[in-house]
Design a protein around this nucleic acid. Structure first.
Lengths: 356, 356
DNA sequence: ATGAAAGCGCTAACAG
DNA sequence: CTGTTAGCGCTTTCAT
């Protein structure tokens, strides 16, 4: 009577099984699956055949244990309601997958410290960590560095600059917006801030204020939207109710501008682009939808993702390399939500941008 | 002269190091980090101290090799431009993280077969796989099953029903929309399809047509938007240019409805909700933005994510359990883009829904 | 309750 | 080019 296989989870074939079937040693099997290894074509063929027959796939877990590299990169993301982040995540994931990495996703609960989840980064021996949006304690960044795990911040930066980062040109973009508004004849600009402690919001505000001052315009009215849709709507409401109503609203990101757009049109009957100008920052997907049609400073998503990968590779190759802070230039994309100035409007790659 | 540590990536502390420092055996250290294990409180304390001193963290890779469980679940997602998916991804990730799993993200390139990436699923010995949006060859699903890896499809279903799935009530929701339009006095409804071979689009169309027929209304005009923004805009343009202009547009998902909204208002000067009714499916984030204000059938994102987890747990506990196809009921959320019928409009949890 | 010993499936010297 | 031999860091019997 034939002995039947035990039921339940059939154990996957191992390199040993393949070796036995192919009549070679187990190390030969290993070599057959290692790109650069020296192996006779004939042996490789025999192994390939046996492997195919058994449905063998090298166990990456076992490989990682030895090589101490998992080919997995942690990506901490949150705030996915803001359509900028899914786009960034997709670009980043594509870039990393293209380079042979897998992405382990951490969606930090807003408010929660990201540290507990990030403990896992160390436990799983991830090759590197990309922090998009979530905050990171400097203690943890240090610990990662000690463990030899490169960290790159995306669209975020620490005070000390000790951790590598990739950001858009927050300061320059905001300054450009100030000049754009001035050129368009706006005289009472206002600003809706994001989170007070976020580098993006602070840098954008600083760039805006400084440029405004340099142009001889008054400092902007200001309200805080905490990068939250409902709170941004409240902020817009507050600003548009001011005795001297602002003639322009610069929102620290598109997500808040989407809220402001609705408030202006539906609650104040102000047509964006005609009676009030509303400008965002990011060029998140919906900004280009005709129903939304938001003028905004576009962050270059693909190049930013590519830059993250290159910095990561750089750190992986040389663990002692110093941190780099990459600032990627973007463009002011002109749509219907802000009045155009008489000069500097040019078409570029099928879209209107402002080049003073 | 004191011997200094070798430079470069300092090797992380192992259970052996901790054991040596604590003066216990390596297995004692293992037990100290295993929740249910029998260990003397005193020993546990000594181990904890030594571990803290060395910054020791159990290597999950090594553990996985033995336990054959990685606590990692693969999630294949794509089409993140459609804001429904980031929301789903976030909910799913939160649910899985809450249950102690990590999420390995696969962003299948559109068009590409998902199989090559999914090979990785097998190599990494993932515990399970959730397919949101990406297509999955039945060959691969079979292979996963043979390898004992549970697969759950999210917002997608196979013909044969051999793979577990969680979907919204596509047929029922679409039928409800048909009845809603009829009740609102619409007489010439049209339909914008998504991808012709997607179960979501097919089921929504079938539900819509059948209900329309039952109501004695003519079959809807039809155009295909392929779940793509630009193509959906084209489809809307085509339908709204028809000699007998439709008085309602049901789009197979919100993302396409966002495009239709823009076309109606900007290109045809038709105010959605007054001159033409536009309805979507999903209740993706922007649908509720006042600038957008889309009437749509809401899929219950959180419950769907929770259901995926429960089905996964079920399959993990019993690998031989049969596939289940969960259909989660949603609600028709009323906003400004579609004319309201005189009856059945009720307020529920702060929003307007239709309960005929 | 604890330690010794045997692997998990694989890679990486090392001889041949 | 190939097989043999050690482990990677951990969990898990099995005695004690």
């Amino acid at each position: 009577m034939a002995k039947t296989r035990a039921p339940g989870p059939i154990r996957a074939a191992t390199a040993h099984d393949v070796a036995r079937l192919a009549g070679v040693s187990q190390s030969a099997v290993s070599r057959a699956f290692t790109p650069g290894a020296s192996i006779a074509p004939d042996t490789a063929r025999k192994v390939a055949e046996a492997a195919a027959r058994l449905g063998y796939r090298p166990n990456l877990i076992a490989r990682s244990l030895i090589t101490r590299r998992s080919s997995i990169i942690g990506v901490a993301a949150a705030y996915l309601e803001n359509p900028f982040y899914p786009a960034m995540l997709e670009a980043l994931s594509t870039a990393l997958e293209g380079a042979g990495y897998r992405v382990l996703l951490f969606t930090a609960r807003p408010g929660e410290s990201s540290d507990p989840i990030l403990e896992e980064v160390l436990r799983y021996r991830l090759d590197a960590l990309v922090m998009a949006s979530a905050s990171l304690s400097s203690r943890f960044a240090l610990e990662c560095r000690q463990a030899g795990i490169p960290v790159v911040l995306l669209n975020r930066r620490t005070e000390d600059g000790a951790t590598s980062s990739v950001t858009g040109d927050n300061h320059g973009g905001a300054a450009l917006i100030a000049r754009f508004l001035a050129a368009g004849g706006h005289r009472r600009p206002a600003f809706i801030a994001g989170l007070e402690n976020a580098s993006t919001s602070r840098e954008r505000e600083a760039g805006f204020r400084e440029a405004l001052a340099a142009l001889g315009l008054p400092p902007p009215l200001r309200a805080v939207g905490h990068y939250d849709f409902a709170e941004a709507a409240r902020a817009a409401r507050e600003l548009l109710s001011a005795p001297e109503r602002p003639d322009a609203l610069f929102c620290a990101n598109d997500h808040m501008a989407f809220a402001a757009l609705g408030v202006a049109r539906r609650e104040f009957g102000l047509e964006p682009g005609r009676e009030v100008s509303i400008i965002g920052f990011d060029d998140a997907g919906p900004a280009s939808w005709p129903v939304v049609d938001l003028t905004t400073y576009a962050q270059p998503i693909q190049p930013m993702a590519a830059r993250v990968l290159s910095i990561l590779s750089h750190h992986l190759a040389d663990p002692a390399a110093p941190a780099v802070g990459a600032v990627m230039p973007g463009e002011l994309v002109l749509r219907g939500s802000a009045r155009l100035p008489p000069q500097g409007v040019v078409t570029q790659e099928g879209r209107l941008v402002w080049k003073p």
